[in-house]
């Protein structure tokens, strides 16, 4: 069943993170001196112009890329490799096409050696949570993009992760579906109480969802400003028309504009 953990977990500590790649024999610095702490159960949005390294930060927490310098620690344990305690929801096309919806959601439980009956029961309850009861036997290819993303969320949450890492998860769905998905995500998050690190370049989305919005600089990405969003929860969709929301949006927009301008003007290293 869907249960919130007794003790809240999911404290992410990113300290002085730097990540550099070599591409075509050139050194590309994606992230530099990036520091961010989250409290357990917090929803933090990473907002920035495209190519600013926000996905790289997420990948470092996921364990997909190793820090060149600095540390990434989750609940006191340094991140060394990917693991089910840090589930990732990708932008799109990350479900296993050869597995049914149910088998996709069961995957993490199967990897932990949980028996078929138990895993089916748990997976079904999380499918129910994301509003996809009745689609257990469908294949991902038969679902719409938004439905696929909901399966992706259920597939992560069934593992009761310390943190859920979301990399522009609604970037590829149409605008109307996106709004519904955001509301659904907030509803689900209220139930599971896991820490969420949410990468996006959509300002409305970041403010609507998050407890804090971290605006990143152009590459190499650093945190430019960390803004608390003091809008009350639960947030109805109409919250985006309130003066408080507008004021915050204006502030964020000004910063993002400036950073996008720099990303455009400055030659890439």
């Amino acid at each position: 069943m869907v249960v919130a953990p007794d003790r809240p977990t999911g404290r992410i500590e990113i300290t002085d993170l730097g990540v550099a790649f070599s591409r075509d024999d050139r050194r590309v610095e994606a992230v530099r001196r990036f520091t961010l702490m989250t409290t357990p159960g917090e929803f933090v949005a990473l907002l920035g112009p495209s190519g600013c390294g926000k996905t790289t930060v997420l990948n470092a927490v996921a364990g997909f890329v190793q820090p060149t310098v600095g540390r990434v620690v989750v609940d006191g344990e340094p991140v060394r490799e990917p693991g089910a305690d840090r589930g990732v929801v990708f932008q799109q096309h990350s479900l296993f096409p050869w597995k049914t919806v149910l088998a996709n959601v069961e995957f993490g439980l199967k990897m932990r050696g949980i028996g078929p009956t138990e895993r089916s029961a748990q997976a079904r309850s999380y499918l129910n949570l994301v509003g996809l009861a009745g689609f257990e036997r469908a294949y991902p290819g038969e679902l719409s993009g938004g439905m696929q993303q909901r399966v992706g969320i259920a597939r992560v949450l069934v593992n009761r992760p310390r943190v859920m890492l979301m990399d522009e998860p609604f970037g590829a769905v149409d605008a109307q579906t996106r709004l519904a998905m955001q509301e659904l995500l907030l509803g689900v998050w209220r139930e599971v109480k896991t820490t969420v690190l949410f990468v996006t370049h959509d300002i409305d989305e970041a403010i609507f969802l998050a407890d804090r919005v971290a605006v990143m600089t152009a590459r190499p990405g650093q945190i430019r400003d960390l803004m608390p969003v003091k809008l009350p929860r639960p947030r109805p969709a109409e919250v985006i028309t309130t003066p408080e929301f507008m004021a915050l949006k204006a502030r964020v927009l000004a910063q993002v504009r400036e950073e996008s301008g720099r990303a455009w003007v400055e030659p890439r290293p």
């Binding site: 990732v88 990350s94 990897m111």
Partner: peptide
């Protein structure tokens, strides 16, 4: 698709499981 391999590892799959699944 390498993203599917990443997805599998972040769901707790080891080497053998990635090969099989």
């Amino acid at each position: 698709d390498r993203q599917l391999v990443r997805a599998a590892t972040s769901l707790g799959a080891g080497r053998a499981a990635i090969f099989r699944e």
